[in-house]
Each structure stands twice: as C-alpha cells, then as structure tokens.
C-alpha cells in the first residue's frame, strides 16, 4: 500500500464526521484538496487537519440540525403559528373571562362573584396568559432575541411546576388548572420564535380572511366554553358539539385561506397544545369522558401529544432533507 492511498483512507475515515449530504457533495473534492495540501511522504494526517476536520464536521452537523433542518414551508408554518396561537389564546382568555365575569357579577353580589369565579386563580391565569401571549409582540416590534428570552420564562416556569407536580401528591393539579395546554403552547412559541422568521413573516403570509377565521373561531370557542371554566360546573353535550364544530370549521378555514402546505402544517402545530387544552376542558367541565380524563390525567394528555410531536418532527425532518437535496440538485445542474 503506497503512502497516498494510506493517507487517503485516513482522510476518508475523518470525513465520517461530516453529514452524509456534505460528504456526497464535497467528499471527493475535499480528499483532493487535503492530499494536495499535505506534505510529501506523509502516511497519517497532520494533527491540525484531524482537529480541523472533526471541528468542521461537527459544525456542519450542528448547522444541519439547527437552522438548516426545517424547510421554508415548515418555517413559514412556525412563523404563522408564532402569531396565530398567542392571538387565539389571548382572544379566548379575554372573551371567555369577560362573559364569565359579566354573568357572575349580574347574578351574584360582587364578593360572591369573586368567590364563585375563583378570583385569585383567574388573576394567576391572567399573568400566565400575558406571559405566554405577549412576547411575540416584542418580535413584531423587531426585538426578536428579547422576545425569545421573554417567551422562555413562562415556558421554563411552567415546565418546572409541571415536573414538581409529578413529585407531589396531587399529580392532576396541573390538569385541574388547565395549564398543560399553556405549557405546550409556551414551549412551541419559543421554538417558533427561535427557528422561524417570526411573527412579521407570519403576519405577511396571513390574509384578512385568515384573521377573520382566527377571530371567529376563538370567539365562538370562548363563549361556548364559558360554563366549563369554573370548577364543579357540569358542561353539556351541546357545548362539546359547538366546540368540535368550531374547531373543524376553523381547520378548514385556515387551510383554505393560507397557502395549502403552510395551512396543513399549521394545523398540526396547533393540534399539539390544542389537544391538551381540549382534554383539560373535558376534565374540568364534566363533558363526556370527563371522569376518564380526570382519573388518568396526564397519561391521557402526554402520550398522544408525544406521538403528535414525533409525527411533526419526522415530517419536518423529511421535508428539510428533501429541500436540501433539491438545493444540491439545483447547484449540481
């Protein structure tokens, strides 16, 4: 075996640090450059080349795993999510509470209304809602990094509380307060702000008709579930039907008013916190299966959510891979 072939084999082994796509695109070319730049008679790579190839390979893999992974369609869907999900949540909270409080204040003396409507819990809910829904406004104003930091705070706090509640005796306390949906929403908002072009791009993609769909759906859901939000009040099948019909109509409306692929991907993203929120409404509102949800708690929320996240992850990874292959093909052509 001559020196060049021994050295080439060393370099080929080191190129394994790079992603397969990178090796396919540049592998042979890099070997040529490495051999041309190497000293005559050398049988093993120089230490500097070894370190450089390992570092370059790790960087290429990190880049692929980070901003290179989701393709434009997924990043656009995340951009729309970063503005639609917080807007829907905020409208839901404001309308739902306004109707609730108006009804209670008309029906009871003020002190009693505060008690019946779980005043302190409602105040805590307001703080959580504002913490989850307002950071995208910072990104809209151009403060994207500040928005990511601000959105990370409720995500971290809710995650810590959720982990803490698993250790305690009341494992379903989180479920009772309806916080799992907002935990998932806050984490997804952080991801959307970090890896997508952000709410400005989302707003540019959305049309007036998309905003109408969002506003109407959140408004109807908020009013329909008014009686479900305070404890011990049984919900009705009519409310469940209204809610299901609203979500179905909103899903169709979003797909129709957005670019097709962005709309479908947005639905998958919305379904992640949406499923948990619906299960919590069922658990707290006495809808059909409420006892089952209450009994099994997080076991009914997180396994399906994990499957959904897995499906979204695989789809995003596959489309990112297809997109990169298309770019490589375009470059090669």
């Amino acid at each position: 075996m001559n020196d060049t072939s021994a050295l080439e084999r060393w370099y080929r082994r080191l190129l394994a640090w790079f992603p397969a796509e990178h090796r396919r695109a540049y592998g042979d070319e890099m070997i040529g450059v490495l051999l041309a730049a190497g000293s005559e008679g050398r049988r093993r790579p120089a230490a500097g080349d070894v370190i450089d190839l390992i570092r370059g390979g790790l960087r290429a893999r990190l880049r692929q795993a980070g901003d290179g992974s989701p393709d434009v369609g997924w990043r656009d869907a995340l951009a729309v999510f970063s503005i639609v999900a917080p807007a829907m949540a905020l409208e839901y909270f404001v309308v739902n509470n306004a109707v609730d409080w108006a009804y209670k204040l008309l029906s009871y003396p003020p002190g009693m209304a505060l008690y019946v409507n779980n005043g302190p819990i409602a105040l805590g809910g307001l703080v959580i809602f504002l913490a989850v829904t307002l950071p995208p406004l910072l990104a809209l104003r151009g403060f994207r990094r500040t928005a990511i930091v601000a959105a990370s705070i409720p995500a971290a706090v809710l995650t810590l509380f959720r982990i803490g509640s698993l250790v305690g005796s009341r494992k379903n306390f989180f479920l009772l307060l309806g916080l799992d949906g907002y935990l998932l929403l806050s984490v997804l908002v952080v991801i959307a702000l970090a890896v997508s072009p952000g709410p400005r791009r989302g707003a540019a993609i959305m049309t007036a008709r998309t905003w109408s769909v969002v506003a109407i759906a959140a408004g109807i859901a908020a009013v329909a579930t008014t009686d479900l939000r305070y404890a011990y009040q049984a919900g009705t099948k009519v409310e469940a039907i209204v809610l299901a019909a609203t979500f179905a109509a909103a899903a169709v409306g979003l797909v129709v008013t957005l670019p097709a692929r962005v709309g479908r991907r947005l639905l998958l993203l919305l379904a992640i916190p949406g499923y948990a929120i619906v299960m919590e409404l069922v658990a707290n509102g006495g809808l059909p299966f409420a006892n089952t949800v209450d009994q099994f708690g997080i076991g009914l929320i997180y396994p399906p959510t994990a499957v959904l996240i897995g499906v979204v992850g695989v789809l995003a990874w596959r489309s990112g891979r297809r997109s990169r292959e298309t770019v490589d093909h375009d470059h090669a052509a």
């Binding site: 540049y26 890099m30 450059v33 450089d52 960087r59 880049r63 290179g68």
Partner: peptide, 21 residues
C-alpha cells in the same frame, strides 16, 4: 485555512446564495 473549515464555509456560502459552482 484547512480543508474542513474551508468546505464548511463553502457549503454555508452556497446555501446562502453568496457563491455558486
């Protein structure tokens, strides 16, 4: 520059549309 650094940079610059083959 060494080859690892150079080709990581060339790949990034190509995907940014700054250079081409």
């Amino acid at each position: 520059l060494r080859a690892g650094t150079l080709y990581a940079a060339l790949d990034r610059l190509r995907s940014d549309g700054v250079i081409d083959v």
